[in-house]
Design a binder for these strands. Structure first.
Lengths: 196, 196
DNA sequence: TGGTATTAACTAACCAGTCAGTCAAAATTC
DNA sequence: GAATTTTGACTGACTGGTTAGTTAATACCA
């Protein structure tokens, strides 16, 4: 079972990571953020690495949940996906993007991190490709290579993410440009209303 | 003047950063990489931060040089730009992308870093927008919003960069997808030959 | 009372940065 | 032009502070 304290420690890790970055992410800071001592953290997580792995699990799980959409219409699903990716996260889960970026930058040196990001990436590309494939089959989208367009969408969202974090830029304009581009690829304006 | 030793230290910083990441970038490691003591580095750079600023200067300067292209034909210039961005850097300047990514991830906590990346980004967007504007004026490209397309190009290259570093992915496919997309936007296939 | 959770106090390694002193080459003086 | 002083570049040893992780004692709760 996942104890309440473990969850609190993981959330404290998130706060500490967002406030000071991975390079300054110390057990002491996490402990302070969780209002306990470092020894208490070591009681729940043997090593810092174990804690970080658990934290990344949580982060990716939350990310996947945010992408979930049970609409049936491909156009609605694509809209929901784009909104989920480009809409700034609610204040409750603040620093979410920053935390992901910090961990991404560690991927070259941390095999486990990289593998998880690879899995997440594959999943995201598949989700988008499936949506597009369905849309083509249903006659809503023009004939194109779903994998190619999916790669474009994920790469643009990766880029928007990096820009948001590193430059402090809003992703609105990028969202619009991507919608315009998808219009060219799919022959349908993602931003437009879908008549039920 | 820029002494030979300063340059060697900066290059050692690059190697140390690429090998172990920003979080493990210590003066000792840089010193070992430069085959000298930490005190020698402190003789040339008062603080670690001063060294890191000098290193980022170097990094951005090199990046800008790589983008330089003196062709006159807009299509050639766009081709050269895309090649420069997507072609994997020569083995000599290895780890270049990784170093940039590491420093980008520090931008949220390091105002100077962020400002420099903002300047670099603005420059890159302007370069692309200028190329497209020229191309439209010369009748080679269809009428579109140059800033919008420039934003798309830079965001895709940002995304491709992040993916290369974090996922270890080759940027080839992304390059192709972007070319295809630019074909839709500009009505001209960037990869195709230009008849002189 | 017995297991769970937490703490204070600790260790050994590591961090950026300092300091006194070395050494060769250049500048200055006679 | 030879002797002296100064300078630039550097080293090894050190400092105070921080790191992840350990341990033994203790609080809490069923």
């Amino acid at each position: 079972m996942e104890s309440e304290t473990r969850r609190e420690i993981i959330e404290a890790t998130n706060r500490a990571l967002c406030e000071h970055g991975y390079a300054s992410l110390t057990m002491k800071r996490i402990a302070a953020e969780a209002s306990m001592t470092t020894a208490a953290i070591h009681y729940h997580f043997d090593t810092k690495e174990e804690l970080l792995n658990a934290f990344l699990d949580e982060l990716i799980e939350r990310f996947e949940q945010e992408l979930a959409c049970n609409a049936s219409d491909p156009r609605e699903r694509l809209n929901a996906y784009l909104d989920a990716v480009f809409t700034p996260p609610d204040p409750a889960s603040d620093g979410f993007s920053v935390a992901i970026m910090e961990l991404k930058a560690q991927a070259p040196y941390h095999d486990l991190f990289r593998e998880r990001f690879l899995d997440l990436d594959e999943l995201m590309r598949e989700v988008v490709a499936d949506i597009i494939e369905d849309g083509i089959q249903a006659g809503h989208f023009e004939e194109t290579d779903p994998d190619e367009v999916a790669r474009l969408v994920t790469t643009v969202s990766n880029g928007a993410h990096a820009r948001t974090v590193a430059l402090g830029e809003q992703a609105d304009e990028t969202h619009q440009v991507l919608e315009h581009t998808l219009e060219l690829h799919l022959g349908w304006k993602p931003g437009s209303e879908v008549i039920a």
